[in-house]
Computed example of a mutant assay.
Amino acid sequence: MDVTVEVAGEGTHELTVGGDATYADLVAQLDLSPHEVSVVVDDRTVPTDQPVDADHVRVVRLIKGG
């Protein structure tokens, strides 16, 4: 499945994931931890352990820097 991922304030990425991928798998492809982001689909936050079922996702980083 092809998914457009918008990382808020950082840009957009076109990713491909398998049919059994979760949103955590999607976030991992961006070198982000599911613990440092919220995943938003259709203006609603979704759990990162949920299977990917959308072709456009917005990722909001909750933690940035060190």
Results as ranks from 00 to 15, higher is better:
T45Q: 12
D2S: 11
D53G: 14
S33A: 10
V60T: 05
V40N: 08
G65H: 07
P47D: 15
V3F: 09
T48W: 03
G9F: 08
K64W: 00
V37F: 06
L26D: 01
T22N: 12
H56W: 01
M1I: 01
T48D: 13
V5N: 06
A21R: 14
G66N: 02
P34N: 03
E10I: 00
T16R: 15
T4Q: 13
K64F: 00
G9Q: 13
V46I: 10
T45H: 10
V59W: 00
T22P: 03
D42F: 05
E6M: 04
E10K: 15
T12I: 14
D2T: 13
V3N: 11
P47L: 00
G66Q: 02
D2Y: 10
D31E: 14
D25I: 03
G65C: 05
R58V: 10
V46K: 12
E14G: 11
A21Y: 10
V52C: 13
T4F: 07
L30K: 07
D31C: 04
A54K: 04
V41Q: 06
T12V: 14
D55S: 14
I63Y: 00
V59T: 04
L32T: 04
D25N: 12
E36L: 05
A28E: 15
L15D: 06
Y23R: 08
T4S: 13
V27R: 03
V52W: 05
L15W: 10
E36H: 09
V17E: 01
D25A: 11
D31P: 00
Q29T: 01
A8C: 04
K64G: 08
D2M: 08
V37N: 03
G9D: 01
T12G: 01
D31H: 13
P51V: 04
V17P: 11
V52L: 09
M1W: 09
P47W: 01
Y23D: 04
S33T: 08
D42Q: 13
V7L: 15
T45D: 04
G11D: 10
Q29D: 02
D55M: 02
V46S: 12
S33H: 04
E6G: 00
T16S: 14
G66T: 00
A28D: 12
V46A: 10
R44H: 14
V37Q: 01
V41W: 05
L15K: 11
A24L: 08
G18Y: 07
V37I: 09
D42I: 00
G18S: 15
V41D: 02
A28Q: 13
T22W: 09
V37E: 05
D53I: 02
T22E: 09
V37K: 08
H56F: 11
G11V: 06
V57Y: 07
R44Q: 14
L26M: 11
H56I: 00
Q50S: 12
R58E: 12
R58Y: 04
D20H: 12
D31Y: 05
E10M: 12
D31K: 11
V5G: 10
M1L: 13
K64Y: 02
E36V: 06
